[in-house]
């Protein structure tokens, strides 16, 4: 509905510097964690743990650095459709590769 598109039209959100620095610190810590996790031998799981941490990091970047946390809802829908489409592409490609 048209109202959704323009819900937050006139609010200009100014993020405190502290938030950015906090997010950055969290990202650095997660980078450390992902390197540390790679040293532990988890066999098949290694890559999934790495991907999980990477997803967490990218969520932080998208929400705060890229301001999605403060954008109107339509931007959320956009992101969900784009990522949804991508995940579908991956999963369906593996409908072939997983069974080869």
């Amino acid at each position: 509905m048209s109202a959704n598109d323009h819900a937050h039209e006139h609010e200009v959100h100014i993020t405190p510097y502290k938030v950015y620095i906090g997010v950055w610190a969290a990202l650095i810590v997660l980078t450390g964690v992902t390197v540390g996790a790679a040293l532990v031998d988890m066999k098949q799981m290694t890559i999934f743990v790495a991907l999980f941490i990477a997803c967490a990091k990218s969520l932080l970047v998208i929400l705060y650095f890229m301001h999605i946390a403060y954008e109107s809802r339509v931007f959320w829908w956009f992101l969900i459709s784009a990522f949804g489409a991508y995940i579908v592409f991956v999963v369906l490609t593996f409908a072939d590769y997983a069974f080869r």
Binding site: A38, T46, I47, A50, L51, S58, V61, F65
Partner: peptide, 16 residues
């Protein structure tokens, strides 16, 4: 650009 590297790094460097 940063986001892409967040995935590139573990996928290339950490799957040994």
């Amino acid at each position: 650009v940063d986001l892409v590297w967040i995935f590139l790094f573990p996928l290339y460097y950490l799957i040994a």
